[in-house]
Design a protein around this nucleic acid. Structure first.
Length: 254
DNA sequence: AACAGCCACAACCGCGAACAA
DNA sequence: ATTGTTCGCGGTTGTGGCTGT
């Protein structure tokens, strides 16, 4: 059947946005709010596809964007979150107020990656490059809770032997945006106000839940099972993966 | 001053998930 | 249950600016 194109390319502008286009887009969203990107360009009088408008708004025009250089704290947090989440830029961005996934992705590829390589750390595995020849345990998730628990146990055992990020607390809790999470020794994962608005995040579209997520839970361990220390009543839908388990990096880091 | 190479970032593309009909 | 549409994500590309020769 074939996939229908996202827009009629023949009649849309492409490339860099002009100031006028920006102004039109901002004015329209101020007046009508976000949403229905497909019809937005026409309604706003823009010769752009909806996708392009969405990107432009999210990555550049949104009023809550921070812009400017990344701070050392942000830098550090990006590294930690990347070691935990991999290339899940949207999830990482959700924890950095005022930053977009695209911005973080670019920052990672241009600065952080190089910095880690310079320190002799593999930016993919977050391990010393020389140690990469040693076994790499792939954590893959199965629907069976017991298998997931086994995977979690294996992952924890592996982490104990060769932590991917030595200063990373693997009992890290990742909580939905509205979650108050102030536990000791936790990475500060407070959400941005902008992010709160987004449904996606760690609860899936419109399916957020209020519990904190422990590392075991994020690996697919059922609530209450050994290895789970979170307060969620929904053990599996951690990290927004509604239909199944988080394929954590076997879930391969590309 | 002109050119080449590099770098950073904005924008695009393709795919999968979610949702509606 | 199936099919089509829309949205969001991650990878990749294009381009403008900067620096060195």
């Amino acid at each position: 059947m074939g996939r229908s194109p996202c827009c009629e390319k023949a009649h849309t502008n492409r490339g860099a946005w002009t100031k006028e286009e920006d102004e039109r887009l901002v004015a329209y969203i101020r007046a009508h709010g976000e949403g229905c990107w497909r019809s937005l360009p026409k309604a706003a009088g823009l010769l752009r596809c909806g996708k392009s408008c969405r990107l432009r708004w999210i990555n550049y025009l949104r009023p809550d964007l921070k812009r400017g250089n990344f701070t050392a704290d942000e830098d550090d947090l990006i590294v930690k979150l990347h070691s935990l989440l991999g290339n899940k830029w949207s999830l990482i961005a959700a924890r950095l107020p005022g930053r977009t996934d695209n911005e973080i992705k670019n920052y990672w590829n241009t600065h952080v990656r190089r910095k880690l390589l310079g320190r002799g750390i593999d930016p993919v595995t977050h391990r010393p490059i020389a140690a990469d020849a040693v076994t790499v345990t792939t954590v893959s998730f199965q629907p069976s809770p017991s298998a997931a628990a086994a995977a979690a146990a294996e992952a924890e055992a592996t982490a104990a032997k060769a932590p991917r990020c030595p200063d990373l607390n693997l009992d890290l809790c990742i909580s939905p945006p509205c979650q108050q999470q102030e536990e000791e020794e936790e990475v500060d994962l407070k959400p941005s106000a902008a992010v709160v608005k987004r449904e996606v995040l760690l609860g899936g579209r419109g399916h957020g839940h209020g519990g904190a997520l422990c590392f075991g839970c994020s690996l697919g361990v059922q609530k209450g099972a050994p290895g789970c220390s979170c307060s969620s009543s929904n053990g599996h839908r951690c990290l927004g993966l509604r239909g199944g388990m988080l394929d954590f990096r076997g879930l391969k880091m590309k």
